[in-house]
């Protein structure tokens, strides 16, 4: 980020809407904030159109608060509910098409490396389960196999939610949703395992039921992607609307699922990534 990017031109401070002045005065750029600081700074995310109680919105909000260097982060999204929130995020973010997010991110990351050889620029993919595990799976996996320095974050709400609640590859077997009228016939895709065997140096499966764990995973994934290789974080983000949950149950269903043994947090770290994390986490 250029130092002046967030400096209002002299004399124009008084005409800027409050929201922008707040970002300048109290935003998270260059401050090394984390989720522990939420509630005391102006968040990157503004008011958004996602449903009340949306697990995806919660995960997105926590993810944005966990970015290690928001001032140097470019986000690549994909079609889906999260795309509705992206215009309200105070970062450069790209929505291209449905499923091509990792291919676009590859181009962005490489171009930024060329243009800013002396700077770290974090390119972070944030997309839903349909975009990541179904329509875009080839491009997601190929970016891992190619060892691109990007972080892939899946907001897993176990459905195509934006198109009206269809079953996805990440839905649990047996789930009755649109386009699976007699129940889903195959298991939930084990993408963390696939990511691991595809060469991701850091892989985690987390949920907003444990915000600190989520924050740590996002941070680690981005740091490892910067220096070592591709990384993947899967965030379980229940959808109250399409699963017909009471909006306030979003977090409790995660806990229940965990109790029933149907969801577990995971973390794979390659040796190289672990060695690197040891150095940065010790420093801190």
């Amino acid at each position: 980020m250029k130092t002046g990017m967030l400096k209002i031109s002299p004399g124009f401070e008084d005409i800027m809407p409050e929201e922008y002045r707040e970002l300048v005065d109290n935003g998270p750029y260059g401050k090394n904030y984390g989720i522990g600081d939420l509630g005391s700074f102006k968040e990157l995310l503004e008011e958004h159109p996602l449903c009340a109680g949306c697990g995806l919105a919660l995960s997105l909000r926590l993810t944005l608060a966990s970015l290690p260097m928001p001032e140097e982060t470019v986000i690549v999204g994909s079609t889906g509910c999260s795309a509705l929130a992206f215009p309200q995020v105070a970062l450069h973010n790209i929505h291209s098409l449905f499923g091509n997010q990792n291919a676009v991110a590859t181009g962005v990351k490489r171009a930024l490396k060329l243009r800013f050889p002396d700077k770290e620029k974090d390119v972070v993919v944030i997309a839903g389960d349909g975009a990541t595990a179904d329509i875009g799976l080839d491009m997601v996996m190929q970016s891992w196999l190619r060892r691109e320095n990007i972080t892939t974050i899946m907001l897993d709400n176990e459905a195509y939610a934006n198109t009206g609640g269809q079953e996805s590859g990440m839905s649990m077997p047996g789930t009755v949703l649109n386009m699976a009228p007699t129940g889903k016939k195959f298991p939930k895709l084990s993408l963390p395992e696939i990511a691991h065997t595809s060469g991701c140096d850091y892989v985690a499966a987390v949920s907003p039921a444990k915000p600190k764990q989520l924050a740590k995973a996002v941070r680690r994934a981005i740091l490892v992607a910067r220096k070592i290789g591709p990384t993947y974080v899967q965030i379980f983000s229940p959808c109250p609307t399409n699963y017909k949950l009471n909006p306030k149950e979003t977090v409790s269903v995660i806990r229940q699922r965990e109790k029933d043994g149907l969801y577990q947090t995971k973390e794979f770290i390659s040796e190289e990534a672990q060695a690197f994390l040891n150095t940065v986490e010790e420093k801190k």
């Binding site: 939610a161 009206g164 609640g165 109250p240 609307t241 399409n242 017909k244």
Partner: peptide
């Protein structure tokens, strides 16, 4: 009904 409408119906 769409997903959210169906939920409200319920």
């Amino acid at each position: 009904a769409s997903g959210s409408t169906a939920a409200l119906d319920d």
